[in-house]
Design a protein around this nucleic acid. Structure first.
Lengths: 337, 337
DNA sequence: GTGAAAGCGCTAACAC
DNA sequence: GTGTTAGCGCTTTCAC
């Protein structure tokens, strides 16, 4: 704060140039492209810059170059611990590449996603959208005008990284089948969730192969609060096992069951997705499909950077699929008879 | 992605100006200061802008004006669920004010904090630093050159918002005393944590008033992993109650106790700070000092915006202290005899 | 290898 | 009211 504008009094390349007895353009070169300048000149410029405490103005640099060294990450709900890992991974990788990361919450809204992208367009080098709620058409359209990578979503040939759902969900069903369950209920999350749709598809397919009945109920808000309604509805179906859209919902189910004195897994087995913070210490600890979400954040940023750095050229990898594994804990057990 | 630079082909005010038959400056005015322009001109400009899909380039706008409509929030560890609330509150308030929020992880490092501020300086309208690890001198120095507000930290007359610790900690001690505990151990967190120091001070003072013995051990990393060592050390002291630096550490202690078959609260009562996600469903659910951290995020952003908007003038409030309250759950119980 | 000059897209005096 | 003219601080041809 202090007085007046924030950048006040900051030395510019002109100050450095005058002090070093060279032209501003030489300072610019010396600082960002030391190779293209006489070694001793470069040295002197660097020395003067350091002495004056010169720091490049990222804004001014970005305007002519079009390069901001800033990346944006949007998540559908910043409240969901699931995204911690994603954010952390992205933040880490962005910083490693010398970039600043902007994190935004799109609040489950495709409109907010689109608006943010339009608004931030020139201010960032690209976007990572996690769990986008936009339609495929919207995504493909935006991807034509902006660098874009997707997490937990596949759409056209937009570069994406997801965690395996098919094989993982098959493992869930097998696990449940081996415990004697014959009737599973899937607790659906947001209607626009791409992973939600995939999870249900995989579940239905796997259940069919095992001759197990599977039905879907919902949608429920993918929150702990949503878990109460989901639990009540699940209990009403007579199913012996519930597979929730995600861990937040699953933990909500656990709480509701405890309130209603329904034994888990005695009367109902519960499975979640994501293995979020808390899944291993809730009670009972939750059986859940774990994925490397931190890595998904890192990978999505990597792909974005690759797109930027070899512009025009296609990035090396598109459609990355990370492995998942079933973390079996105490919320699943033998089916009641 | 597509072809070439990200901003490519975006219409500028020049395009709008030509199409609307006015000068660029009129477009600029019409769009950002409609009052200072003829009503029908303004209307026409707006119409053309909409038709062309014109969107202001935030970067270009920020350079001459010095105003970026972007705020930065730094947290000491983006992994700690405690900051979810802070981030959410800040993000919400920033968006409500039409600002973009940059979220950064400073990894418990005062150097990273300082460097980020220097680097981002001209690119943002101000900084919110949560749980700063910098020294008072550094903070005050930086606050002279940048707009800055603090969360969970007080330093000089830099605007800050904290959650009450004195009264809250007194309540913890009273709660413990009423359960018959006569010996408390405080599990310290990061040495540079300002709140950590305040919590221990308050605890020691309150314990003394109650004639209870209190000692401090540590420091421990403020993570669940750190809780294992903390639990072992705490158990070695013979204290009947442990007050942890924060909930992450406290939940780690709970887990370690479970592993070692130490009954909580039968043999050891455990108290945390922050009431993070998970504190109410770990086992046993954690007694903890809850605070309105989401509100702290909102308030810090508000103060920052106030500083920016009435520049030079002092902001209305400095040193906000939000109330805390003790959430008593099952991790505390009568002292063993 | 280095300097001069022309912008990047926008805002903000300053004239008219 | 509206247009003209300078920049904001930097990068980047283009000459020399």
């Amino acid at each position: 704060m202090a007085d007046g504008k924030a950048g006040g009094g900051r030395p510019t390349i002109y100050d450095v140039a005058r002090e070093a007895g060279v032209s501003p353009s030489t300072v610019s070169r010396a600082l960002s492209n030391p190779g293209r300048v006489n070694a001793v000149t470069a040295e002197r410029v660097a020395e003067v810059a350091a002495r004056l405490g010169y720091r490049a103005n990222a804004l001014a640099r970005a305007l002519p170059s079009g390069r901001t060294d800033t990346l944006a990450l949007f998540v559908s709900d910043i409240t969901n611990p699931h995204f911690f890992g994603v954010i952390r991974g992205a933040e880490h990788q962005a910083r490693a590449a010398g970039c600043t990361l902007i994190v935004g919450d799109t609040q489950e809204s495709p409109e907010v996603e689109a608006r943010n992208i339009e608004r931030l367009g020139p201010s960032v080098d690209g976007f990572v959208i996690a769990a986008s709620r936009m339609s495929d058409e919207e995504i493909v359209k935006l991807a034509a005008g902006h660098r874009l990578t997707l997490i937990s979503r596949q759409s056209g040939d937009v570069p994406s990284v997801i965690v395996d759902h098919a094989e993982g969900t098959r493992q869930i069903v097998e696990h449940l089948a081996s415990l004697g369950h014959r009737s599973i209920v899937f607790l659906a999350g947001p209607p626009r969730s791409w992973v939600g749709a995939r999870r249900w598809e995989s579940l239905a397919a796997a259940a069919e192969r095992h001759g197990i009945s599977a039905r879907r109920i919902g949608p429920f808000p993918p929150t702990m609060a949503g878990g109460a309604a989901a639990a009540d509805a699940a209990l009403g179906t007579g199913a012996t096992a519930a597979v929730a859209h995600n861990d937040l919902l699953a933990i909500g189910v656990l709480r509701r069951c405890a309130e209603r004195n329904v034994s888990v897994p005695g009367e109902l087995s519960v499975v979640g997705y994501d293995d979020i913070f808390g899944a291993d210490f809730c009670s009972p600890p939750l059986t859940t499909l774990a994925g490397k979400y931190e890595e998904s954040g890192r990978t999505a940023v990597d792909m974005l950077l690759a797109m930027r750095d070899r512009d025009g050229t296609r990035p090396p990898r598109r459609r990355v699929v990370l492995p998942s594994h079933l973390a079996i804990r105490r919320s699943t057990g033998p089916a009641p008879r």
